[in-house]
C-alpha cells in the first residue's frame, strides 16, 4: 500500500508528466508532412530542443529539486536529458497509435541520416520498453528516478540527490507490487531498462558526432 504522502507525490508527478509534453502541432508535423533528409534533421533537432524544455519544466516540479545546488541541478539535467528523451519517445511506440503512424515515424527516423549502427539499439530499446506495458505512474516515476541519478558527472552533493531519489524508488517498488502482484521481477526489470538507457546515452554521443559529420 502507498501512504497518503506517497499517493500525493505520485499524483503530482503523473499530472506534471502529462502536462509537460512536446507541443502537439510539432508532433503532428512529424506524422503529416513529407520532408527531405535535411528537413528531417531540422525537425528532429527542433523536437529534441522541445523535449529538453519540457523535461526541465517537469523536473522543476519534482519535490525538492529546486532546493538542490544550482550547478548540481544543471549537472543532473545535462546527464539525464538524453535518457529521459528516449524514455519519453519509447511511449510513442508503446501506446496504440492509429494504424501506420509508428511505421511512418520509424521510417522518418531511419531516413534522417543516422547510421543503422545507432538506430538498431534505439528500436531494440523501444521494443524492450514496449514489452513492459508500463503504466503512466511507472513512466513518470522512472523518468524522475533517471533524472535524480546521484552518480552523474559533476554532481557535487550526491547525498542530497540520493535523498530525493530514494522515496521515488520506494514508491515505484510499491506500485510494481500493487499492479503486478504475480510478476515479482517487474520492479527489477524496470530498473534494468535504466541500465539499457545508459548504454543508449553513450551511443547517442557517438551518434551525434557521426550525424554532424554527415
Amino acid at each position: 500500500e502507498l501512504t497518503r504522502e506517497q499517493h500525493t507525490l505520485l499524483n503530482f508527478l503523473v499530472d506534471s508528466y502529462n502536462k509537460h509534453r512536446i507541443p502537439q502541432d510539432m508532433a503532428k508535423k512529424l506524422l503529416q508532412e513529407q520532408f527531405n533528409a535535411e528537413e528531417n534533421f531540422l525537425l528532429l533537432t527542433e523536437m529534441a530542443t522541445s523535449h529538453v524544455q519540457v523535461l526541465v519544466e517537469f523536473t522543476k516540479n519534482i519535490p525538492g529539486f529546486l532546493g538542490l545546488d544550482h550547478e548540481d541541478q544543471i549537472a543532473l539535467l545535462k546527464g539525464s536529458a538524453v535518457e529521459a528523451m528516449f524514455l519519453r519517445s519509447a511511449q510513442v511506440f508503446t501506446r496504440k497509435m492509429p494504424s501506420g503512424h509508428s511505421e511512418l515515424l520509424e521510417d522518418r527516423i531511419r531516413k534522417s541520416g543516422i547510421s543503422d549502427e545507432f538506430i538498431t539499439p534505439m528500436f531494440n530499446f523501444y521494443n524492450s520498453i514496449g514489452q513492459l506495458h508500463m503504466l503512466q505512474e511507472e513512466q513518470a516515476l522512472l523518468t524522475a528516478i533517471t533524472i535524480l541519478t546521484p552518480e552523474r558527472p559533476y554532481v557535487k552533493d550526491q547525498q542530497a540527490v540520493e535523498r530525493l531519489q530514494d522515496p521515488m524508488l520506494d514508491v515505484l517498488r510499491r506500485i510494481c507490487a500493487l499492479h503486478h502482484p504475480h510478476q515479482p521481477q517487474h520492479f527489477a526489470r524496470l530498473l534494468g531498462r535504466l541500465t539499457e538507457l545508459r548504454t543508449l546515452n553513450h551511443h547517442h554521443a557517438e551518434m551525434l558526432t557521426s550525424w554532424r559529420t554527415s
Binding site: L42, T45, E46, T49, V52, Q53, V56, E57, K60, L66, H70, Q73, I74, L77, K78, A81
Partner: peptide, 21 residues
Amino acid sequence: PANNLGLEDIIRKALMGNLED
C-alpha cells in the same frame, strides 16, 4: 534559433525561466 543552442544552454535558459517567474 533554439536549434543552435547546446544542451547546457537550453537547460540553463529553461531553468532561468523559473527564476524570472
